[in-house]
Structure formats: structure tokens, C-alpha cells
Write a protein that binds this DNA or RNA. Structure first.
Length: 418
DNA sequence: TCTGGGGTCCTAGGACCC
DNA sequence: TCTGGGGTCCTAGGACCC
């Protein structure tokens, strides 16, 4: 049996834990740069504010309905997510953290009469321990557990729904639109509709072989999963193969030197993430973009540069990424977004040495270890590379007009209490 | 005025090997 | 006139997820 545990309106729920006045109020949380609406309370959903809508289009509507607005606060959400996941692991260490607000749990028994009671216990404990409300879907496969979760969220099920029995599956799968099945989105959905498959029940009862010929092995697996034949197992947590750090700027930038500093800052962050999972990069990708929504002349520049030997040394990678800026920068454009991606990451232990060069990681590794340790102990940015001039940061800093305090990760930011 | 930031997997086709 | 039968690796692009 698989369980999918999903935090309800996660970012909104995080804000509510530390600001209970928001309970029962319509609340939305915005993406970076206060761009789009990416989380909505049930009250905000009831006002028909869509997921992913540009904030500026809904600003008047939001003011008129007294919707509370928050900028995204990832230090808070990330920390709350950890608490939820650690709490879940207390119940079942065989879990896969699927996203910041979702986890799959695998139980070695099939569903029985106690399954629902067990899930309710988990749900109540998570709420008691973290303040975050969750919904739990149960099923014999991941795909069915996912579907069960959407029913768990409906009012009358108290946050838990068990889709293990064949009769339950018969009753409910016809109510799931094809596009709402995990792994099937608009394109495949409309292709399936063209051959008369419009809901989960119809997909379940179609021929896997025919579906494979039509859309490939991924959708074939979904057919089996809907039939109750598990094709997907709990994934162990593997190191990422690529790491990206990119941002839209608060204001457009045209000077190369500022863009270069931005790239340096984000190279530093990306390298930290890379070392944190004990990997080295074999190549990097750097890009600069103008604002695609504007009518001004557009430019989209990017370049991949290879490293001779896998590398996790920030200084060496900065050399590469800042030279990349020289290669792709074109004067006369108003840049709006830039970023860096570390590519083809491989574990530190696998050393493919350069035939002609004498690579020795030990000195660099020691140096990076000290840097990471200092930044961890005394706060991010305590020690950084010289290419970064922090006084220029305000030139690209994202808009965050509605930011809440980092309640759980930075004590001196707590509001003063008398 | 204003429009996010991350990831994964699969497939087809090209280039190469014997 | 006629032109085999296996393979591997890499890349780009397309689909999906949160």
C-alpha cells in the first residue's frame, strides 16, 4: 500500500501557523519577484483566483475582496517542510520526499480496516507537531494514491481517503478527468480525448499495448498503475544531476559589470548546493534574457562551457561563468533575467582525471569545506569570492513587498513582543 | 509598472563501432 | 541489377511534475 501525504495549501498554511489571524481569511502567496499567485487558501480558491495568475492582473480584485497577500518566504517554507517530513519519518522511514509539500510512504501490508484509522492518526499528529494540515490518499499504487488524495481533500472525508478496494475504484475513477491524472497533462489529455478516453476509468480499461504505441511507455505505465499493478516504487533520494540558480531582476539591468556580479553571486549559491550533495560539475550553462512580455527588442543568450575535469571549486567555476558573460553579453538590451546551471553532476568519489593535467582535489576540497562551514555557522555570505560586490545586490534584488518574518530560522527577525 | 524557479524521464535521430 | 546485421553513445527536443 502506498500513501500520498500532501500539505493543504502549503505556503498559506505556513503563514497561518505563525499568524493565526489569517485562518478563515482568503490568503495568497506570490512567486519570486511578487510575480504570480502560486498558493491560495480555500477562501481564495472560492473567489476563483486561478493558480499561476499574474499578480498585477488580480491586484484590484484582491484589494476589493480583502485578500491577504504574501511574498514567498522560502526559508520559512523549507524549514516547515523539513519538520513535516521528519515527522512523517517517525511513522514510516520508507518515504520519498516528492516535493516541498508532498511525500509518498510505502507500507508493507495491503490496505485493511485499520488503514484509514492509521492515516487519520498520522494526519492528526502532523498537525499537532507542526501546525500544518495534511491530506492523505491511500492506494495500491502511487498513481491511485495520488488520485485518492484529491478525494481526501474534499470536505466529507476528513482528510483521508482509501482507494484500495476495487469497488471504490469503479465508483470514483470515472469522476477524474484525464488531465487530472498524475503524469497526464493538457497535450496527452487532448490526444487521449481524440480516441475517446476522457476519464481515469476509461484509461484504466484501455489496452496498454495500444496506449504504448500511441503515446509511449510512460502512459502505458499509468494504465497499469490505474489497474492496480504497481510500476512505480519509492525512489531513493539521489543527488541532482543538474542544479540551477536563476532569478528575474527587480528592475531591468543593462550594464555588463552588474550582470557579471549577479552571475558570480548565483554561481556561489549553485556551487554550495552542489557540494552539499557531494557532487562535481562537468559543464556549466549561463544565460541572459530580456523580458519576453515586453515589446522591446529581445535577446536570449546562453552558452554551455565544459570543464576539463569535474569541478566543485567555486573560484574555478566563477572564472568560467564570468568569462561566459563576456561571450554572451550584447550591449543595448534591457536584461530581465539571468541564471546559471551546473550540468552533468557526478559524485565526488568518481574521479575521471585529465590525461594531460595533474588534478589534485585535496587542497581545493579542504578550502571549500572551510568556506561552507563558516557560512553555515555564521550565516550565508559570511565569506564570499571577491567578484561579488554586495552593494550592487539591490540592483537585482527581487521585489518582496509582502514578506513575512523568517519565524523559524532567524530569531532576530521576530517581531518585538512586549 | 507588473508575468517564478526549480527539476525528471523518454524518444528519435545521428554518428560512430564491428 | 544487386548493397547486412548487429550494437553503443550522445544530443536535442518534447513531455511531464511541483
Amino acid at each position: 500500500m502506498f500513501a500520498l501525504v500532501d500539505c493543504n495549501n502549503f505556503y498559506v498554511s505556513c503563514e497561518r501557523v505563525f499568524n493565526p489571524c489569517l485562518i478563515n481569511q482568503p490568503v495568497v502567496v506570490l512567486s519570486n519577484n511578487d510575480g504570480c499567485i502560486i498558493a491560495r487558501s480555500n477562501e481564495a480558491k472560492a473567489l476563483n483566483i486561478p493558480m499561476g495568475a499574474p499578480f498585477h492582473i488580480y491586484r484590484d480584485f484582491i484589494n476589493a475582496h480583502r485578500v491577504k497577500v504574501y511574498s514567498s518566504n522560502y526559508p520559512l517554507y523549507g524549514d516547515m517542510s523539513n519538520r513535516v517530513m521528519m515527522s512523517l519519518a517517525e511513522f514510516n522511514p520508507n518515504l520519498e520526499v516528492y516535493s516541498i509539500d508532498e511525500a509518498f510512504l510505502k507500507f508493507n501490508q495491503t490496505s485493511g480496516t485499520n488503514s484509514r484509522r492509521g492515516a487519520l492518526k498520522i494526519k492528526e499528529s502532523i498537525f499537532k507537531w507542526t501546525g500544518i494540515p495534511v491530506s492523505i490518499g491511500l492506494g495500491p499504487t502511487k498513481t491511485l494514491a495520488k488520485i485518492a488524495n484529491t478525494f481526501a481533500k474534499k470536505n466529507n472525508h476528513h482528510g483521508v481517503f482509501d482507494l484500495s478496494s476495487k469497488t471504490k475504484q469503479e465508483e470514483t475513477l470515472k469522476d477524474i478527468n484525464i488531465e487530472n491524472i498524475w503524469g497526464i497533462s493538457k497535450r496527452w489529455g487532448s490526444k487521449l480525448r481524440m480516441i475517446g478516453i476522457g476519464n481515469a476509468l476509461q484509461l484504466r480499461d484501455s489496452s496498454p499495448r495500444r496506449i504504448r504505441q500511441y503515446l509511449g511507455v510512460v502512459v502505458e505505465r499509468i494504465v497499469y498503475e490505474l489497474q492496480g499493478v504497481a510500476c512505480l516504487d519509492i525512489n531513493e533520494i539521489l543527488p541532482k544531476k543538474n542544479i540551477m540558480c536563476s532569478r528575474s531582476f527587480g528592475n531591468v539591468i543593462s550594464e555588463k559589470t552588474i550582470l557579471k556580479q549577479f552571475i558570480v553571486e548565483h554561481t556561489i549559491r549553485a556551487c554550495e548546493k552542489m557540494r552539499n550533495q557531494n557532487t562535481r560539475a562537468q559543464s556549466v550553462y549561463i544565460f541572459l534574457k530580456t523580458n519576453k512580455f515586453n515589446k522591446e527588442k529581445q535577446y536570449n543568450g546562453g552558452i554551455v562551457l565544459g570543464l576539463n575535469t569535474p569541478c566543485s571549486d567555486t573560484a574555478q567555476i566563477i572564472k568560467l561563468t564570468s568569462s561566459a558573460v563576456d561571450m554572451i553579453y550584447r550591449p543595448g538590451y534591457l536584461y530581465q533575467k539571468a541564471g546559471i546551471m551546473l550540468l552533468d553532476l557526478i559524485p565526488e568519489g568518481i574521479n575521471q582525471y585529465d590525461f594531460f593535467e595533474n588534478t589534485n582535489y585535496s587542497l581545493s576540497d579542504k578550502r571549500m569545506k572551510v568556506v561552507d562551514l563558516l557560512n553555515k555557522k555564521f550565516g550565508a555570505g559570511t565569506i564570499a569570492n571577491g567578484g561579488l560586490r554586495s552593494k550592487n545586490k539591490e540592483k537585482w534584488d527581487s521585489k518582496k513587498y509582502y514578506l513575512s518574518p523568517r519565524y523559524t530560522t532567524q530569531w532576530d527577525e521576530l517581531p518585538h513582543v512586549t
